[in-house]
Amino acid sequence: MVHIWNDPTEVPRDFGPTVVTIGNFDGVHRGHQHVLAQVTQTARRHNIPAVAVTFDPHPAQVHRPESAPELIMGLQDKLEALGSTGLDAVLVMKYTLDLAAMTPLEFVRDVLAEGLHAEHVVVGHDLRFGAGNGGDVGTMQELGEKLGFSVQVVNEFGAGGFPLHHDGDADRRCSSTWVREALSQGDVVTAAAVLGRPHRMRGEVVHGAARGRDLGFPTANLSHDSTGYVPADGIYAGWLIDESGTRWPAAISVGSNPTFDGVSRQVEAHVIDRPREAVEDFDLYGQTVAVEFTRRLRGMVAYQGPEALVEQMNLDVAQAHELLVRG
Rank of each mutant, 00 (worst) to 15 (best):
H3Y: 11
W5Y: 04
D7V: 03
V11T: 02
F15R: 03
G16S: 06
P17M: 08
P17G: 00
T18S: 08
V19Y: 03
V20R: 05
I22L: 14
F25I: 03
G27C: 06
G27S: 07
H29I: 03
V35M: 08
L36G: 01
Q38T: 07
V39R: 11
Q41K: 14
R45M: 04
H46P: 00
P49G: 02
V53N: 02
T54W: 12
D56T: 03
P57V: 03
H58I: 10
H58E: 10
P59V: 08
V62G: 06
V62Y: 08
R64D: 09
R64L: 06
R64P: 00
S67R: 15
S67L: 13
G74C: 04
K78Q: 11
E80G: 01
E80A: 13
E80K: 13
S84W: 04
G86E: 06
V90F: 04
L91W: 09
V92M: 07
K94R: 15
D98N: 15
A100Q: 05
A101V: 03
L105F: 13
E106K: 15
V108S: 04
L112H: 01
A113C: 00
L116T: 00
V122Q: 05
V122M: 07
V123R: 05
G124L: 05
G124C: 02
H125I: 00
R128Q: 13
F129P: 00
N133F: 08
N133C: 14
G134D: 06
D136H: 14
E142C: 02
K146D: 04
G148C: 03
F149N: 00
S150Q: 10
Q152M: 07
V153M: 02
V154Y: 04
E156L: 12
G158H: 10
F162A: 14
F162G: 13
L164S: 06
D167C: 07
A170M: 10
A170G: 04
E181D: 14
E181F: 07
S184A: 15
Q185M: 10
D187V: 08
D187W: 09
A193C: 08
P198N: 14
R200I: 01
M201W: 06
M201Q: 15
R202K: 13
G203A: 02
V205K: 09
V206R: 12
V206L: 08
V206D: 07
V206N: 05
G208C: 09
A209V: 11
G212W: 14
R213H: 11
D214C: 09
P218V: 13
T219H: 12
N221Y: 12
T227D: 13
Y229F: 15
Y229C: 02
P231T: 05
P231C: 04
D233L: 10
Y236H: 11
A237D: 03
G238A: 13
T246D: 09
R247G: 00
W248L: 05
I252L: 04
I252C: 03
V254G: 02
V254Q: 11
V254S: 12
S256C: 14
N257T: 09
V263I: 04
Q266S: 13
V267F: 12
E268Q: 15
H270R: 14
H270A: 11
D273M: 12
V279C: 04
E280H: 14
E280S: 14
F282E: 07
D283V: 12
Q287D: 04
Q287G: 01
T288I: 13
F293P: 01
R295I: 03
A308V: 06
Q312S: 08
D316I: 05
A320L: 11
H321M: 02
E322L: 12
E322F: 06
L323Y: 12
V325L: 13
